[in-house]
Amino acid sequence: MTSVRHWSELRVELLRRAGRDQEARRGLGDPPTSEQWDVVKAVDADNVPWLARIVAEHGWPRAELVGEDGAHAAWLLAQHAPLYLQQRWLPLLEQAVEIGQADPSDLAYLDDRVRIREKRPQLHGTQWLIRNGEERLYPVEKPNQVNRRRAALQLPQLADQDIASAWPHDAAFGDAPAEPL
């Protein structure tokens, strides 16, 4: 899959799969019904092994090969992968960001997602938890520095009340969903 034609086909497939991912998650209830969750799990069960094969064979889908939208679509699929794959792919995405071939904000979101799933505080304040209609940030490491870290990645600043409303560490991780949406 090294020719331009193949990379453009990969881009199209990444975009198609990302579209299916988002369609499956659109309109999910709080909490999702078992039928809604079954649809999400089926889409992920198709997308994740496919992306795992692509990454194993060709490395992380870089923007120069699949376009910025294709690279972003790969990140979106990774957001919904099992933790062990996210942990494996995080350094690959980081390398792509370092050479200007992936969006730094995508890296922030995946890094925070991995940290939350490992029950560690996030760095960039991208992950929120909704309980009984109340939305709060998962815990943030050194919250007084979060907006500086966000600015470095061109992410919008968090309002002081957002940072202050972060769930206490134990409350956020105690019964948080194992698989963020």
Rank of each mutant, 00 (worst) to 15 (best):
Arg113Lys: 09
Ala81Glu: 14
Leu158Tyr: 00
Ala78Thr: 13
Gln127Lys: 08
Pro143Asp: 03
Arg131Trp: 15
Thr126Gln: 11
Leu77Tyr: 02
His124Gly: 09
Leu123Asp: 10
Tyr109His: 14
Ala151Arg: 07
Gln122Tyr: 13
Gln145Lys: 12
Glu135Lys: 14
Leu110Trp: 03
Asp162Phe: 00
Arg150Tyr: 02
Leu107Glu: 12
Tyr138His: 12
Arg136Glu: 12
Asn147Tyr: 08
Asp112Cys: 09
Leu92Met: 08
Thr126His: 14
Pro121Val: 03
Ala74His: 03
Val97Ala: 10
Lys119Leu: 15
Glu94Cys: 12
Val114Gly: 01
Gln161Lys: 12
Leu110Ala: 00
Arg136Leu: 04
Leu76Val: 05
Ser105Cys: 06
Arg136Pro: 05
Pro121Asp: 08
Val140Ala: 03
Arg115Leu: 10
Leu90Asn: 05
Arg131Glu: 15
Ala151Trp: 00
Lys119Met: 15
Leu77Asn: 01
Pro104Met: 06
Asp112Ile: 08
Pro143Ile: 01
Asp162Arg: 05
Ala96Ile: 01
Ala73Met: 08
Asp112Lys: 01
Leu123Phe: 11
Trp89Asp: 02
Gly125Tyr: 10
Ala102Phe: 01
Leu85Pro: 03
Val114Lys: 00
Arg149Trp: 01
Glu135Trp: 12
Leu123Asn: 11
Asp103Ser: 10
Val140Asn: 03
Ala108Asn: 07
Leu92Thr: 06
Ala78Phe: 14
Leu137Glu: 07
Leu85Gly: 06
Gln86Glu: 15
Gln87Val: 07
Ser105Asp: 11
Glu118Gly: 11
Arg136Lys: 13
Glu98Asp: 11
Arg115Lys: 07
Tyr109Ala: 13
Gln161Pro: 06
Leu92Arg: 06
Asn132Met: 13
Ala164Cys: 05
Leu92Cys: 05
Glu141Tyr: 05
Asn132Val: 05
Glu141Gln: 07
His124Lys: 06
Ala78Cys: 15
Gln157Thr: 05
Asp103Lys: 01
Arg117Asp: 12
Arg148Gln: 09
Val114Asp: 07
Leu110Thr: 01
Asn132Ala: 14
Val114Trp: 15
